[in-house]
Structure formats: structure tokens, C-alpha cells
Amino acid sequence: MPATVITYIIRRLFAAVVLLFVVSAVTFAIFFLMPKLVGATPETLATRYVGRAATADTVRETAQRLGFYDPIYQQYWEWVKGIFAGADYSYGSGVEHCPAPCLGYSFRNHQPVWPDLLDRLPVTLSLAIGAAILWLLGGVAVGTISALRKGTIFDRAAMGVSLAGVSLPIFFTGLLSLSIFSYNLGWTAVGGSYTPFLDNPGEWAYDLLLPWITLALLFSAQYARLTRAGMLETMNEDFIRTARAKGLRERTVVVRHGLRGALTPILTIFGLDVGLLLGGAILTESAFSLQGLGKYAIDGITNYDLPKVMGVTILAAFFVVIANLVVDLLYAVVDPRVRAK
């Protein structure tokens, strides 16, 4: 790898770190400043975490424990410090050290966030990657055939279905498919099933099959449309005519010359989609009761559990940034014209 590429990557990673700080600072600010606009005090914020029977004393002590009396920038600084230096946390009966990277403790159930994130990451990772492979293959195949058979019944049917696919809500399709395939037919695993890949790859795939398909359906619809449009454009390019003029078989022309050109822009979107999904497929995880990052984020948001929200936000932003970088690097691999720049 040439030195310029390495400096490029380093520059991008540095920018990514800055971005992560900005994102986390904004999340932090929203969490504290928004309530402030409607008149919240440290105590009213703390009432969210004290349970139903708290006395005014408890509320004050809780606000103290959670650091709500400190200025926001200092609270943020404490949080940032935890990432690099770790933090100490009192359980009442003792103090536990949370080693770096310490993303804090849940305001609500006292669990440290970082191990929770690591615990949930494989679920989200499995879901996103499996679905991504399915939708990429499915969407590209359907889109390609549609483009090559433009105007035929197949094309119209596929595009009609994909329009529906994009607009169907996943909690509807998810529950419906669970009802049909798990509860009526017994073909797939019930909601909430998950087996770690390393425990049993077969079970892992079996458990995730339905979530994969459901999530992939949603995306493959979009990818089919993109592929179709891309292929229609690419197959009209001069270099396709050249390929044919060489006497190449039509299949070679379509796959090696057509798809290769059409897929490049799709790669960008694919990278970003996967990056976003790695931060948690909220609706799919909810519909299938998968304990992934998305579900964790939702729990955090509905319970005002800032450290959880911060944790997922940081992780999700990290994935998006990395996905962006990977896409850009891949782009250079795929499109030699980009490399020159």
C-alpha cells in the first residue's frame, strides 16, 4: 500500500475521531439542554431515575450521584475521561472500577454500558451481515433481470413488488412472517431465537433466517430498483457495445462489463446501509425480539438512559464512519479512475 494511501487513511480516521466527539457532544447536549428549555432542573431530571417512591432527599442524592449538578461540559468531560482512563462506580456496597474504554453505567440498572454493547454487537452484526448478503444477491439479481427484460411481465411484477417491499413496515412483515412460518408452518425459529455463531453455525443461521429474509426484503426492493436503473444506463454505454463487438458471450457482457459498471454506485449505498445497520436494526430487532444494539438503543431512549444512548450512538457513528472509509477505499479498488485522485 503506497504511503499516500496510508496517510489518507490516517487523515480520515482522525477526522472520524473528531466526528465521534461531535456526535457524542451533540447527543449529550440534546439530552440535557432540551429538558432545560422546558424548565427542567437537576432534580426533575433525577426524578426519572428514582423510582416511584422517592423522597426529595433521594432525588437530590440521585441527582448528585449522576452528576446532574455539574455543568454540562463537565459531565461530558467526565464521560469522555471514562473512555480513556476508565471510571469508578459505587454500587452502594462497594466501588467497582470500570476499565477504559468505559462508556459509563446505565442510569437505570447500573450495568456498565461497554460490556453490554459488546454483548449485543454479535447479534446486530449477524443480522446485518446475513441480511446484507441476501439483499445484495437478491436485489442485484432481480434488478439485473428486470433491466435486461425491461418492460416484460417479470420486470413489471418485480418492480411492483419492490415498490410494495419498500413501503411495507417491517414490524408488520416481521410479525406476519413469524405467524406464518414459525407458528403455523413451524419452518423457522420462533421470535427471540438467537444462537451465537461459534456455538452452532447451523442453529445460528436457522434462528436468523426469518429476520434476515424480512430485513433483506425491505432492502432488496431498493437494490433491485437501483440495479435496474444502473444496468439500464450501463448497458447503453459504449463499452458494452465494444464488449459485444469482441464477440463475448452475452452473459459475460452482462456480468463482467454491465454489472461491474452498474454496481459501483450501489457499492456506496451498500456500504452506508450496512454501516447504519451495524448501529442496530431497530425495527427488525424489535419485531423479532433480538437483543441487538437497536433494541438496546430503544431501551435507552424510552428509559431516558443516557449512557446507553450515548454508547449506541458512538458505536453506530463509528460504524458509519468506518463504512464510509471502507466504501471510499473500495471505490478506489473498484474504479481505477478514483485511485488517481
Binding site: 454505454e237 463499452f239 465494444t242 459485444r244 459501483t264
Partner: peptide, 23 residues
């Protein structure tokens, strides 16, 4: 006809940039 193309008859086109695959 395809098997003749490129072998017994060949063609070059107007715009060599767009006529070659960029990748």
C-alpha cells in the same frame, strides 16, 4: 454472428474513452 465478431470482423469506435471499460 457473435463467433465471427472480433474474429473475422472487428470494429473500432469513435470515442475510445467511452468505448473502453474504465475498470
Amino acid at each position: 454472428v457473435r463467433q465471427l465478431r472480433g474474429k473475422r470482423m472487428a470494429m473500432i469506435f469513435q470515442d475510445p474513452l467511452s468505448a473502453m471499460h474504465p475498470f
